[in-house]
Write a protein that binds this DNA or RNA. Structure first.
Length: 558
RNA sequence: UGUCCGAUGGUGUAAUGGUAGCACAAGUGACUCUGACUCACUUUGUCUAGGUUCGAAUCCUAGUCGGACAACCA
């Protein structure tokens, strides 16, 4: 009924929104075009999600568009498997790209641009080996030395460059360099490489090319070719910006994309480097990029994180230029908030202790009605079986309860959710003194969970019927897999030694029979336990549940 | 003993010379057929030192601390 949200309730613009808003207002641009430019050399992770939400979100907010561009200029590392996974992940996150492009689409144009630069005397073919050139480049505090090939005549460079392309030389024999400034305090301007000879099979262009452009040459020109207005990247490219602009100036291109940088996402207890994630996969510490413990988009999807939650998270973390480490608790909060509204409730017992209802008829089973989501009547109800022998969670019973423990203990009455009020009469132990069974009674008048006489209980606990309940595999993941924050690991120590061995515990859980019908990637809240998601690879009748995130527990034993 | 970038509660992020706000986290209480959710309340902050100004988180100067940069990776 209320009016659409007006200006006064709008969030203040972040610095990128401000820049775009200004550009639009002062007429610098009529339409904006952004791009998300991953290299297809790995799977996307939560850090990429920030960039995706930024680029697509900015475009959407200002009625512009966003391209998906694969920055595939280094064929050695790249593969179609990664292209496919990236497309799937971006789409799953809820974004549609205006155009799908590949830097490799522009290889010919880029080559032509490179010839232009050579003809203008702004690029030259250099014979130096990487080691020799490193020597010339020097250190930031001292000017470098010029390559002896720097002033090679343009015709000679052009000839060599054409022969590089024609495949006349072995890999690494020559490199094409931009002729900029060997004395610049910015090392990236000390005659950076533009092209290298590399005989590698490219996943799109095959063996057409044996020379490939470097990022610094390809990126701003790809932006230019597509007509990108705002080229948004992470902070480590800040020092590349003068180069970005240099190439555009040198070629006097019709479009002038601008590069803006933001601080990348860091998450507590989370590996966020593609290089390290690749190691986890290649060394077999995890089961592939889509392992539910991985902070990859596909891993989180499989674990049960929702796209809406990830988008919300990216919105909440904001964007700025200062280094940051976001508390994982915020991500988990976003996941809980989304799942709380959408996930069906179910009862499951992870660590069972048997309960026998002494005054309940042997052999009888009754089917009780339970709401699928009490806060959402639309979610409907389901039937759950109840009989004389049940399982409850071991931690929901204490023989000698402290003051603030409200759940089951000898002599105390609690509610079994959707069922009856139950009173514990007797504790049965084994030789070792461990509790193995609880003898209880029920009050038939409290069927469904309400006492006609109006008496109250302090706690409601979950349970599963021992006869009709079903065992399933439940994977209890810890919060990703680092024991400590990446920053807290001592210098020089391998991050592998920081992996959390408790990050995956598999155990048998007892669940309502209806859960055997769970569909892959279907979400549930196991009441009072946590949010779970049927595994992507689950089979009907035998699902495996991954724990997405625990419920918050406000009871803390003293 | 270089260049560039940055610095606001525990963690993030606003305030664009005029009341330091919001979220997460933490704590207290209320409610509850989930000790969840929800609701109410509370604790905690402008790196330092100078300067400009009626007034500075914001502008200036110096310092301190943190980060990035020396692939034929992106």
């Amino acid at each position: 009924m209320s009016e659409p949200t007006s200006e006064n309730t709008e969030k203040p613009l972040n610095f990128l929104e401000q820049i775009i808003s200004d550009d639009l207002q002062n007429g610098k641009h009529k339409n904006i075009l952004t791009r998300f430019p991953p290299e297809p050399n790995g799977y996307l992770h939560i850090g990429h999600a920030k960039s995706i939400c930024l680029n697509f979100g900015l475009a959407k907010k200002f009625n512009g568009k966003c391209n998906l561009r694969f920055d595939d200029t280094n064929p050695e590392a790249e593969d179609v498997e990664y292209v496919d996974s990236i497309r799937e992940d971006v789409r799953w996150l809820g974004f549609e790209w205006a155009g799908e492009f590949y830097a490799s689409d522009y290889f010919q144009k880029l080559y032509d641009y490179a010839e232009d630069l050579i003809k203008k005397g702004l690029a030259y073919v250099c014979d130096l080996t990487p080691e020799q050139f490193r020597e010339c480049r020097g250190v930031p505090t001292q000017p470098g030395k010029e390559s002896p090939w720097r002033n090679r005549p343009a015709e000679e460079s052009l000839d060599l460059f054409r022969r590089m392309k024609a495949g006349e030389f072995e890999d690494g024999k020559y490199v094409l360099r931009a002729k900029i400034d060997m004395a610049s305090p910015n090392l990236h301007l000390r005659d950076p490489a533009m092209y290298r000879i590399k005989r590698a099979h490219h996943h799109r262009t095959g063996d057409t090319w044996c020379i490939y452009p470097m990022y610094d040459f390809a990126h701003e020109l790809s932006d230019e070719i597509e007509g990108i207005t705002h080229s948004i990247c992470t902070l480590e490219f800040e020092v590349h910006r003068p180069l970005y602009d240099w190439f555009l100036d040198a070629l006097n291109t019709p479009h002038r994309p601008r590069q803006y940088e933001f601080a990348r996402l860091n998450l507590t207890n989370t590996v966020m480097s593609k290089r390290k994630l690749r190691r986890l996969v290649e060394e077999g510490h995890v089961n592939g990029w889509e392992d539910p413990r991985m902070p990859t988009i596909s891993g989180m999807r499989r674990r049960g994180y929702t796209a809406a939650a990830i988008r919300d998270f990216c919105e909440r973390i904001g964007v700025a230029k200062r280094e940051n480490i976001i508390d994982l608790a915020l991500l988990e909060h976003c996941v809980r908030e989304d799942l709380n509204q959408t996930a069906s409730r179910a009862m499951a017992v992870l660590d069972p202790i048997k309960v026998v209802i002494e005054n309940y008829p042997e052999g009888q089973t009754e089917w009780l009605e339970a709401a699928n989501n009490p806060s959402d009547p639309q979610a409907g109800t389901r039937k759950i079986p109840f009989s004389r022998e049940l399982y409850i969670e071991r931690e929901d019973f204490m023989e000698d309860p402290p003051k603030k423990f409200f759940r089951l203990s000898p002599g105390r009455e609690v509610r079994f959710r959707w069922a009856y009020f139950i009173t514990c009469k007797e504790v049965v132990k084994n030789d070792k003194g461990e509790v193995v069974e609880l003898r209880c009674t029920y009050d038939p008048a409290t069927r469904g969970g309400d006492a006609p006489d109006g008496r109250k209980v302090k706690a409601t606990i979950h349970w599963v019927c021992a006869q009709n309940g079903k065992p399933v595999q439940a994977r209890l993941f810890d919060r990703f897999f680092l024991k400590e924050n990446p920053d807290d690991v001592p210098e020089g120590m391998d991050f592998i030694s920081n992996l959390n061995p408790a990050s995956l515990v598999e155990k048998t859980a007892w669940v309502e029979p209806s859960l055997l019908e769970a569909k892959p990637l279907e979400h549930f809240q196991f009441e009072r336990v946590g949010y779970f998601c049927a595994d992507r690879d689950s089979k009907p009748g035998a699902p495996v549940f991954n724990r997405t995130v625990s419920l918050k527990d406000s009871y803390k034993p003293a």
